[in-house]
């Protein structure tokens, strides 16, 4: 049984850790990507400073 049983144990524990780490890594990547997207969307929706609004420029 010896080395054969250890092979199966290693396979089972290997699968567990690969699945969990890949899952955790994927979530972290997705959270990081969404936060970048969030920052970009926020910046886009905020009025840009130091620029004359188009309406005001026409009136002048």
């Amino acid at each position: 049984m010896g080395s054969n049983s250890l092979l199966f144990v290693a396979a089972a524990y290997g699968v567990i850790w690969v699945v969990l780490f890949v899952y955790l890594f994927t979530i972290h990547q997705r959270v990081a990507a969404l936060r970048d997207q969030l920052e970009a969307t926020r910046k886009r929706s905020e009025p840009e400073s130091g620029r004359i609004p188009a309406k005001a420029a026409v009136q002048d």
Partner: peptide, 10 residues
């Protein structure tokens, strides 16, 4: 034998 070790995490 060692196969039992799979049981704990399973």
């Amino acid at each position: 034998g060692d196969f039992q070790r799979i049981f704990y995490f399973h």
